[in-house]
Amino acid sequence: MELAISVITGLMILGALYAIHAKDLLSSVIACGIVGYSLVICFLLLKAPDLAIVQIVVDTITLIIMVAVVLDSSREEKYSKPDTMGYVSAATGIILIFIFLWFFIASIQQLDVLGKSTLRMAGPYIEGAAYKTGSANLVTGVVFDFRGYDTMGEAVVLVTAVLGVLTILRLKGKK
């Protein structure tokens, strides 16, 4: 199991590197699709069918929106010599990578080995949860019953994002 996940994640890393370095913006966007669709296979291997259903549709719609934006333009990334700002940002990147590496090494000792998850909250959410909420799908029970506030907040964030899109794209005001 762990080997299969690692191989698929390796393919995702290759796709991501190509997406970042491609000359043509259209192929960059489509290589980003490689990463998203590989994630669907990972979700199926990790026994999360809800996430797989959502991710496969969401990735398609993201691809449609990105292609609609890119096809409007000249589609080429202009290469230019790195200036002083380029060196500053490269140095910042190296420093940030070392900071994240330090946090990762500190936190990976707290995590369990893959497949032996012992989260403290897992027990109460699983034992008898089907009879507490009445829902056979435990994920729906957690989303709408135990953690209803979270879901309401995220729905409001969705409405706010739509309002932002409408505000940005409106050219003429309504009469």
Partner: peptide
Amino acid sequence: GHLTPGGGFAGGVIIAG
């Protein structure tokens, strides 16, 4: 949504598609 995999978020995205 409360019996099989899926639910409000998954079905809504499929309808939008």
